[in-house]
Design a binder for these strands. Structure first.
Length: 808
DNA sequence: GAGTTTGAAACT
DNA sequence: CAGTTTCAAACTC
């Protein structure tokens, strides 16, 4: 699948692969960049000129106008003040835009000299300012502590620059809250700048500040606190670490488009104050992709109403590519969880959450039927959802899963976001307690998504602006430190952007399935779409297709039926493992066996050299499991000693003649099985939610286009996030909350291992509901670790069917 | 694009 | 569980 978009994605991506941020992303993202190009470019040197190419993809079409571009310059008199007047929180985009823009202005205001020239040297668009902003902040972060010592704060510009960077997050509020014009905001900012100078003039007590920050900013874990301390002391290098402490939770949200919507809508009235910018020059202008990325990222965090608005804006249904062309997958658990969330959310916030949730649902539904929008786009943004089939994992993934698990555990321990944090008055409450509360919650929970951070970043100053700055007050320190903290949102956001893009890049590699079913109604495993866990979409040429959201009930029922027959029916056919599957017997394949077909093929005539062969199709070699005849599988023959010429009869004859060998073989298998069981019990079990969160280790590049490779990812995260929002305590058994037949499936078919607490001691046994052997008999040599994982995962997915709502 | 081949899925 | 049928993808022309 050497599509142009992949090429586009792959090459520039590598430019920052060596950066800490990338490394971090790498560690987080379920998408494993497989094409690594060695380009040693640090994050600080990351030029956004490269970003467009990095993320250039058809779905990031020109129709996606930049929200930033749409933003007017704050100084633009035509800019509506609706964001203030409405009393609602402005959209993240607006905040973000102002955030960056005003940071620039702040810089100018604080540094009347050179910086102005820098900023005004060219009439950049706002997003280009943003482009500038990141390095600046990085510079600030990099230099501040040490630089202070070096320069003794003698360089005014340096200090002011720092102050500007520090104050950047404060500016938006300053502007918004100053009804008397920009003077107040400037004064406010200048005071911050001055305070910054004074701070440095008084000895640049960074250590003390950092210490205070560590104390004031209530981190949810010692790690986060430590990381924050580190980031202040060695910012650039520590950004990753700090984000590391924050990101897992963020990523869970961010991975999900749908869930992201929750955030802003929970606050506002639902009507975004943003008014359509009649001037379209921004849109028409060629936009750097970074802006699109930002927009994409932020849009994903916006309320659905904004998305709808954007749809109107585009006036091109189906071109809302970043969401609309998502191929609806059978990630039913998300819908169920979402629906469930409506019931469980407590009063105060439930209305908001529910509102947003419903918006999400509605929006999602609206977008489900994928209408003409370009096939490529469809492929670019296929189902960002849990393909129920894609449930294998590898031991390699344990790290990630473990990490996520820990993060999640922290989340669960966190208090719910208090309503005050979201309440319109929260941002304006002058009280110190209020501030502390808000900040605390932000620290503890605010990272639940970047929007919240951004939002808060723009709101925190609200407190500050209403307070008199006391130079000696701890509040000032807190303000500064919170500003610093807020500036970290930059990094978080960028990380999210990268993650999203990588995620999308991964999705492009698969999920573009199309069937041609005529008689099966796409409700049998004959249908590739159905088998892959995705709905049929337009490219399909199926007839009488029932595999569509409108027939969700039927689909689920059928699926359930099939799974009742074979719980692994929807599991990936090819299980890849990080570690080579142990070969059993000297005669086994000589080829690397990092993956095996779940059940083995049964080819008779194709010699496993054509895609008729599922092994070959899956890009894996045949194994003992296969019953193929005359195997010549290029990826690895079933039996190296029988390559090609022998027929199965020959093999059987040989085996019959070598009975002792067979017995030996069996013994080996037994030993191996036991060994694997021991290993498995030593490994952390994979909780349900985790299994849904991380994509398979499948590297789609190895797979033929039609193979059943699936991406987990976004929606899976949604599932988890929904649980978070609901505060469901038992993340391991979310299925218990499901209703109706889905629950029946869960309890009836959930293997013991999955119904338990997921403790490692549950072992590797995979039992079918009937107690029958789930795996085909050919697994006599025992499952590989990856296969075991796959079993667990697929079975865990069984109960995830939510109650359905007919799609329209 | 139509027809054939193939092997998995489904059925008995 | 084995044999048969059905089915749709893969393949060929």
């Amino acid at each position: 699948m050497d599509t142009p978009e992949r090429n586009q994605i792959g090459t520039p991506k590598a430019k920052f692969e060596d950066s800490p941020v990338f490394n971090y992303i790498n560690s987080l993202s379920p998408i494993k960049p497989v094409k690594s190009v060695h380009i040693t470019q640090t994050f600080s040197s990351l030029s956004f000129a490269s970003l467009p190419s990095v993320f250039t993809s058809p779905h990031v079409s020109s129709h996606k106008e930049s929200r930033f571009l749409r933003r007017r310059n704050p100084s633009d008199p035509s800019k509506p003040e609706s964001s203030l007047e409405s009393g609602n929180k402005v959209s993240v985009n607006e905040d973000a835009a102002e955030f960056y823009i005003n940071a620039e202005e702040l810089h100018e205001s604080c540094v009347p000299g050179d910086s102005v020239g820098e900023a005004s040297a060219e009439p950049p668009s706002e997003h280009s300012k943003f482009v500038i902003e990141l390095p600046r902040n990085l510079k600030y972060d990099c230099g501040s502590p040490e630089c202070d010592a070096a320069t003794s704060c003698g360089t005014e510009a340096g200090c002011e620059s720092e102050a500007a960077a520090l104050s950047a997050p404060l500016v938006p509020y300053a502007q918004k809250t100053s009804e008397n014009g920009s003077s107040d905001g400037e004064a406010h900012l200048q005071s911050i700048c001055q305070s910054g100078q004074r701070r440095e003039g008084t000895g640049c007590d960074w250590e003390s500040l950092i210490s205070d920050a560590t104390d004031l900013l209530i981190f949810d874990s010692p790690n986060a606190s430590e990381a924050f301390r580190g980031i202040m002391q060695n910012p650039l290098d520590s950004v990753t670490r700090f984000c590391n402490s924050l990101m897992p939770r963020l990523s869970q949200n961010d991975i999900n488009d749908e869930q992201n919507v929750l955030v802003l809508d929970t606050v506002g009235s639902g009507e975004q104050p943003e008014t359509e910018d009649p001037s379209s020059q921004y849109r028409e202008a060629s936009q750097p992709e970074d802006t699109e990325l930002m927009q994409d990222h932020l849009n994903s965090r916006m309320g659905s109403n904004q998305i709808e608005k954007e749809d109107q804006f585009n006036c091109k249904p189906g071109l809302n590519l970043h969401r609309g062309l998502r191929r609806r997958c059978l990630d039913f658990e998300t819908a169920g969880a979402r629906r469930k969330s409506l019931d469980n959310v407590p009063n105060s916030s439930s209305s908001m959450l529910s509102q947003s949730d419903e918006k999400i649902t509605t929006n999602d539904k609206q977008l489900v039927p994928i209408k003409p929008g370009g096939e490529s786009a469809r492929c670019i943004l296929p189902g960002i959802g849990l393909h129920l089939n894609a449930l294998a994992t590898t031991s390699k993934d344990y790290k990630t899963i473990k990490r996520e698990n820990m993060a999640y555990g922290r989340q669960l321990s966190l208090p719910n976001l208090a309503a005050s944090a979201h309440s319109p008055t929260a941002g304006q409450g002058p009280g110190h307690e209020s501030f502390s509360s808000a900040s605390s919650e932000r620290d503890m929970d605010g990272t639940e998504n970047g929007v919240q951070l951004l939002q808060d970043a723009s709101q925190e100053p609200a407190f500050l602006a209403n307070e008199e700055f006391n130079q000696n007050s701890p509040k000032k320190k807190r303000h500064v430190l919170l500003s610093i903290y807020s500036s970290l949102n930059y990094y978080v956001m960028f990380i999210f952007i990268f993650m999203r893009k990588f995620e999308q890049a991964g999705e492009t590699e698969s999920s573009c399935k199309r069937c041609n079913c005529k008689k099966s109604k796409c409700l049998k495993l004959y249908c590739e779409c159905f088998a892959a866990g995705v709905y049929c979409i337009e490219p399909c040429s199926c007839q009488e297709c029932f595999n569509k959201p409108i027939h969700e009930d039927t689909v689920l029922a059928t699926r359930k039926q099939i799974e009742s027959r074979n719980p692994l029916a929807f599991a990936p056919k090819v299980i890849r493992t990080a570690d080579p599957v142990p070969e059993y017997g000297e005669e086994s394949s000589k080829t690397p066996a990092s993956a095996r077909h779940k059940r083995g093929c049964n080819c008779k005539k194709s010699s496993c050299l054509k895609k008729y062969c599922e092994c070959y199709q899956g890009g894996v070699g045949c194994s003992i499991s296969c019953r193929c005849e005359g195997c010549k599988n290029a990826f690895g023959r079933k039996d190296g000693s029988f390559v090609g010429t022998e027929t199965e009869a020959d093999e059987e004859e040989t085996e019959a003649c070598d009975k002792s060998a067979a017995e030996k073989h069996q013994q080996k298998n037994e030993i191996q099985r036991n060994e694997e069981q021991r290993q498995d019990s030593a490994l952390p079990s994979t909780p349900l939610r985790l299994s849904r969160q991380f994509s398979l280790p499948f590297s789609s590049k190895n797979k033929p286009p039609r193979s059943s490779t699936f991406n987990i990812g976004s929606s899976s995260g949604l599932y988890t996030i929904t649980i978070q929002k609901l505060g469901k305590p038992n993340i391991l058994r979310p299925e218990s909350k499901l209703e109706g037949h889905n629950q029946a499936v869960a309890e009836d078919e959930m293997p013991e291992i999955l119904q338990g607490d997921g403790s490692p001691s549950t072992g590797i046994k995979t039992a079918s509901p009937n107690g029958k052997r789930v795996s085909p008999p050919n697994n006599e040599f025992g499952p590989s670790p990856g296969r075991r994982a796959g079993r667990k995962l697929i079975l865990q997915s069984i109960p995830s069917f939510p109650s359905l709502t007919p799609q329209h």
